[in-house]
Each structure stands twice: as C-alpha cells, then as structure tokens.
C-alpha cells in the first residue's frame, strides 16, 4: 500500500485517498474557438510517463482536501507534495 504524503496531514495510508490523475491540466482558454482536435487533446490526452509524474490526490477519508505530489511510476517513490496554487517544486529527476 502506498504511504501518501498529504501536505496538510502528513503521510497516511493509500486507502484514505482517491486518485485524481495528472496535475496542472488547465481548462483551455478561448474554449469556444477550439477545434475538435484541440478538444480531444484537452478531454482525452493525459501524460503517462514512465518515471516522475506530478499528480493529484484527494485525502477523502482525512482532511478531504485536494493536493499535488511528485511520484515515480517506476518504483512508487514519492517526491515533494504541495498545495494547489502554490509554486510547483522541481521534478526530483
């Protein structure tokens, strides 16, 4: 089981969390002018790196807050976690 570092509560068991996939996916600007290709990219394409990934989790059975964290998809090692709307720490890579 993952031991996930909530930036509000500290490390807690994975079963207290839900996954939110890739972090920092912004809603497109000029959304009324987007082509179908651009919409497809926003709706369906998420990065799927083998290595460090910035992702979102929600501490649903704890503080119930969303946050971001760096995690390595090769060995499940965690890097720094950080609150939304704060400066993103550098990738540990």
């Amino acid at each position: 089981m993952l031991h996930i570092p909530c930036p509000y509560c500290g490390p807690r068991d994975e079963t207290e969390f839900h996954y939110g996939s890739e972090a920092h996916v912004a809603y497109p600007e000029n959304s009324s002018n987007l082509t179908d290709e651009e919409w497809a990219k926003f709706v369906f394409i998420r990065s799927n790196p083998k290595g460090w990934m910035a992702e979102r989790w929600v501490h649903s059975a704890g503080c119930r807050r969303w946050f971001n964290v760096w995690r390595n998809t090769i060995n499940h090692e965690f890097g720094p976690s950080y609150k939304p709307f704060t400066q993103q720490p550098k990738s540990p890579a």
């Binding site: 993952l2 839900h18 990934m53 060995n75």
Partner: peptide
C-alpha cells in the same frame, strides 16, 4: 487506482 509501470499493486 494510479498510473504505474511497476507490475505490482497494493
């Protein structure tokens, strides 16, 4: 629930 290439889970 999460992305992984580790061939193991919880």
């Amino acid at each position: 629930s999460y992305n992984s290439y580790a061939q193991r889970g919880g």
